[in-house]
Structures are given as structure tokens and as C-alpha cells.
């Protein structure tokens, strides 16, 4: 390349565009009103079914000693509540835009492109988070879930937030792979299965055999669901909060580093190869 390299002066960072991206994403989600009913409806049905399963298992004395029948139903209901926001692939726009080439228009704007995807995804998730209000009311009034003390609730909220970030970066990494390969749905499906199984969304991980548990904790999925849920039902005592949330943080940092590297390599591919 000829010509002297200029100093890279970064333009002044303004938060406003990203707040607007999030707001716009919420407005966009609001146009799909039907989603509201299906989300709430499927939540009720799934909690109901899981309650039947756990009740039947407990009636046959197959109960794990750490969790009472009510605690495990609470666990399942809260897991499904979390799923309302956690199961959203908030950065799938990246994959879609790489497929149809419209990612180029995002690079034409004076924005930090990955921040745009973060803001857009967060807006989408925040809109769905509103659904947590009626869903939580249903969980309280119909399924009588346990409500722990404010200290535990606060720890749960923080751990939930950390779990959300783990999920965000995991999704972002998967969507980034669309820079290199057009077909990523198979990989995504496998990751969804792994999350369902090893994340603790469906079955508390403490019910797994010991040898599997070591393996499970070497994967990031437990940091998404299991950690906040076990805090909520009290299996993880306050004395271990620092340790378990520290581990979540380690996952976030690690996945954020991988995300950054993948984004850099991927976007370089676009600016050099033209996508």
C-alpha cells in the first residue's frame, strides 16, 4: 500500500445511536403482537407439563434429597421464565445480513458495527423481558413458586444478567461463523441441544451422575441457566456466590475475547475479499 498510514483518530463516541438502535428494535418487536400470546401460552403449558412430570417422579420416591417437590417445580418455572429472554438468538441479524450481503450498509454508517448488533439484540430482549411480568404473575398465582428473600433475589438477578451475557457472546460467536460458512443452522441446533441438556434449563445439573458433572462444568452452558437457578432455589449457598459468579465472569471474558477475534478476522475478510 502506498501513502503514509494516517493516525487512527477515533471519532467521539456517542451512546445515543445505540440507545436508538435498542429502541428501534423494541418498536420492531412490538409489531409482532402475536408473539406475545404464543410466548405466554407456551410458558403456561410447559410449566404445567413439567409440574406433572416432577409430581409423578416424586410420588414414586425418586426425589433428589436436595430439592423438595415445590422447590423443583419452582426451579422449572423460573428456568422457563428465564428462557423467555435467554432463548432469543439476539444477534441472528448478523447471520442474516451476511447471507444477503446487506451487512455492507452497516459498514457505511459512522457506527461501531458489533455494538450495533449488541444494541439491537438488547432492544429485542428488553421487549420480551416485558413479558416476564405477566408470566411471573402466572407463576406466582397459579404454580405457587417459592419466593426467596431479597438478598437471594438480588444475587439471582445479578447471576441471571451474567448468564445472559454468556448466552449473548455464545450466540454472537455462532453467528460470526457465518463470515466463513453460509450454513450454520446445524451447528446452532447442536448448541441448542447442548444448552437444553447441559445448561440446566430442563433438568437441574445436580441430578446428573458425578462423572458427567465434571464434564458439564467445563462447558459454558451451566453458567447460563444452572448457576442463577441454583442460587434461586438455595442449593448454592451465599458463601459460594463469589466463586460461582466469578466463574460466570471468567466465561464472559473468555467468550468476549473469542468474539472480538472472530469479529476482527471476519470483518477483515469482508473489507479484503468484499464478502
Amino acid at each position: 500500500m502506498t501513502g503514509a498510514v494516517e493516525p487512527r483518530r477515533r471519532p467521539r463516541f456517542r451512546l445515543e445511536p445505540y440507545v436508538e438502535f435498542a429502541r428501534t428494535a423494541m418498536a420492531r418487536e412490538a409489531t409482532y403482537r402475536f408473539d406475545v400470546f404464543t410466548t405466554i401460552g407456551s410458558f403456561v403449558v410447559r410449566v404445567y407439563l413439567l409440574r406433572m412430570v416432577w409430581t409423578a417422579l416424586y410420588a414414586h420416591n425418586a426425589a433428589p434429597h436436595e430439592l423438595s417437590r415445590r422447590a423443583i417445580i419452582t426451579y422449572s418455572a423460573v428456568a422457563l421464565l428465564m428462557g423467555i429472554v435467554m432463548d432469543i438468538d439476539q444477534t441472528r441479524a448478523l447471520k442474516d445480513k451476511l447471507h444477503d450481503g446487506s451487512i455492507a450498509t452497516d459498514f457505511l454508517k459512522p457506527i461501531i458495527v458489533p455494538f450495533y448488533f449488541f444494541a439491537d439484540g438488547t432492544g429485542e430482549v428488553l421487549f420480551h423481558a416485558v413479558l416476564l411480568i405477566p408470566a411471573t404473575l402466572i407463576a406466582l398465582l397459579i404454580f405457587h413458586i417459592i419466593v426467596p428473600g431479597p438478598g437471594v433475589l438480588a444475587a439471582f438477578a445479578l447471576s441471571f444478567l451474567l448468564g445472559y451475557l454468556v448466552g449473548f457472546f455464545l450466540n454472537f460467536i455462532l453467528n460470526c461463523s457465518a463470515f466463513w460458512t453460509l450454513e450454520i443452522s446445524a451447528v446452532q441446533l447442536i448448541v441448542t441441544w447442548l444448552t437444553d441438556l447441559f445448561g440446566g434449563e430442563l433438568i437441574p445439573l445436580i441430578l446428573f451422575p458425578a462423572f458427567l458433572q465434571n464434564f458439564i462444568y467445563a462447558l459454558p452452558f451451566a453458567a447460563m441457566f444452572s448457576t442463577p437457578l441454583l442460587i434461586y432455589v438455595g442449593v448454592i449457598p451465599p458463601s459460594r456466590y463469589f466463586e460461582v459468579m466469578g466463574l460466570q465472569l471468567v466465561w464472559i471474558v473468555g467468550l468476549a475475547i473469542v468474539s472480538t477475534l472472530m469479529w476482527r478476522a471476519g470483518s477483515r475478510r469482508i473489507v479484503v475479499q468484499g464478502g
Binding site: 494516517e6 471519532p11 459498514f107 459512522p110 457506527i111 461501531i112 473489507v271
Partner: peptide
């Protein structure tokens, strides 16, 4: 949004691929 293989380019005094956001 594309880096040239060689040659020089300036748009309003800016090398676009070096300072994409400012150019934008």
C-alpha cells in the same frame, strides 16, 4: 468498506479504509 490492493485514495482528505467511521 473495501481495502484496495494497491494505489492511493482520498475522499475529502481522508483515506476511507483507514478511517471508515469518519469517512462515513
Amino acid at each position: 468498506i473495501l481495502v484496495p490492493t494497491s494505489g492511493s485514495v482520498r475522499v475529502a482528505g481522508i483515506v476511507p479504509y483507514q478511517r471508515r467511521q469518519e469517512n462515513a
